[in-house]
């Protein structure tokens, strides 16, 4: 970006009345009062949660909802995670703890011996999902996450795989299961032929 790309916006001059601040206050009061008595809108906006659920009304799009995590399984029923630590590296809340080990399967190098997510620390930003090269970790639309102790909300590998079993139908995996470490990502067409038609 060059300097002349920057548009400098000057704060607009205030009129005398605006400087006095009182008209604005009255204006604000008018707005809040209007909302106070707008019953129609209130009914339209608010859901009475335990009785009404947004997924029932179709308002919650399950495909991209950021709820409880799950660990996907590959077609053979093994954990799809390769313990690359990308999710825990990307995690801004540092809520993913992984311990890697040599996998017991011949076609895989590494697998997570331990995979814990502290759902209380998590901010549900979905960075882990973005970072995962094998689409192993995903956020499900499950949002009803309660427990009596904090420890229960540190989900370990078994629980996360269990979440996958429960939510298999809810959120189809975006890509078919792959073992090529995410090579099938959608690359930009422009970078496809690096050696051709370069500017001299």
């Amino acid at each position: 970006m060059r300097d002349d790309d920057i548009i400098v916006l000057k704060e607009p001059e205030l009129t005398a009345a605006e400087r006095l601040y009182l008209p604005q206050i009255l204006d604000g009061l008018k707005t809040t009062l209007r909302h106070m008595f707008d019953l129609q809108r209130r009914r339209a906006v608010v859901h009475q949660y335990p009785e009404q659920k947004r997924e029932d009304t179709g308002e919650l799009r399950t495909a991209n909802y950021h709820g409880v995590h799950r660990l996907n399984k590959d077609p053979d029923g093994r954990v799809a995670c390769v313990a690359c630590f990308m999710c825990s590296t990307a995690c801004p809340a540092h809520c993913i703890h992984i311990e890697a080990g040599e996998s017991p399967w011949p076609d895989r190098e590494k697998y997570p011996v331990k995979f814990d997510i502290d759902e209380l620390r998590c901010i549900y930003c979905g960075m882990c999902e973005e970072a995962c090269p094998v689409d192993a970790i995903e956020l499900t639309p499950l949002y009803e996450l309660v427990s009596c102790t904090r420890e229960e909300l540190i989900l370990d590998k078994e629980k996360l795989l269990q979440v996958y079993e429960e939510t298999k139908a809810v959120k189809p995996r975006k890509n078919p299961p792959v073992t090529d470490y995410g090579l099938t990502g959608r690359q930009s067409l422009d970078v496809a032929q690096p050696n051709v038609e370069r500017k001299v």
Binding site: K10, E11, E13, L14, T15, A16, A17, E18, R19, L20, Y21
Partner: peptide, 18 residues
């Protein structure tokens, strides 16, 4: 008088230090 003086003062109410 208040309004007059408010109109005179060039300082915006937000007083952002630009």
């Amino acid at each position: 008088v208040l309004l007059r003086s408010a109109a005179r003062s060039k300082r915006p109410v937000t007083a952002r230090q630009d």
